[in-house]
């Protein structure tokens, strides 16, 4: 009998997949705990929005639960499949009319309270903190300006440190295309962030 433990080390991928196919709830919980942060980072790389990214990750897990029996190819890796679903869900969200509508009506002000929670620490340096925040915001904006193809490659590389072969497998594109899109993404980001990079990374 399978125990309901959530100790990840006890669950190798093959066993996890087999139990997920049986609809085992303990296995599902292990899957969530093992991958939620990784998938969240990917989703956030696309959306730049915490709540939307959490919703995407939840949807990914539900899709896995529904489709692992008939859609998962045993020859591929579970993480590759998960990353692919996450990228697709993120693409879908980015082009959904509901999101575009909400973005259009978003207030201009942003809540900086979370960011400036560092103010109480000894490391507080207003100028440096402000510059860092400016750079981070500029990077988020620059990412939005990238096309979805270049952004996908950049996010998978930077977030998960995937190899070119793994990215090629997740996005179903050639390895050479991964290299050229990544080069394009980095070039575009450098150009957008030129003034900050000259200042901060000399």
């Amino acid at each position: 009998m399978v125990s309901n433990t959530t100790d990840e080390d006890l669950w190798n991928e093959e066993r996890l997949v087999a139990l997920l196919k049986e609809g085992h709830e303990g296995a599902f919980r292990v899957l969530v705990r093992k991958y939620q942060q990784r998938l969240f980072k990917i989703a956030f790389g696309f959306t730049s929005d915490r709540e939307e990214s959490l919703d995407i990750v939840q949807e990914v897990f539900l899709k896995v639960h529904r489709h692992i029996s008939n859609s998962f190819d045993e020859k591929s890796k579970l993480k590759t499949w998960l990353y692919r679903i996450t990228a697709n869900e993120s693409f879908n969200l980015l082009r959904s009319w509901k999101r575009r509508l909400r973005r259009y009506h978003d207030p201009l002000e942003t809540d900086d309270l979370d960011y400036f929670s560092e103010l109480g620490t000894n490391d507080f340096a207003p100028d440096a903190l402000y510059q860092k925040k400016e750079l981070e915001e500029a990077l988020q904006e620059a990412l939005k300006g990238l096309g979805k193809n270049a952004r996908a490659v950049f996010v998978l590389k930077e977030v998960q440190g995937l190899s070119y072969d793994e990215i090629s497998s997740v996005l179903k594109i050639r390895r050479g295309t991964v290299s050229s899109r990544l080069c394009y993404a980095r070039k575009t980001l450098r150009k957008s962030l030129e003034k900050y990079l000259d200042k901060d990374h000399r």
Binding site: Q36, G45, S53, K132, E136, E158, L193
Partner: peptide
């Protein structure tokens, strides 16, 4: 390298503030 570092810092902060217990 600089862009990569900043991006990962942003992601790290977002992960630390996301409610994964609620997600689960």
């Amino acid at each position: 390298q600089g862009i990569s570092t900043v991006f990962r810092e942003v992601l790290g902060r977002e992960v630390s503030q996301a409610d994964f217990a609620d997600l689960e």
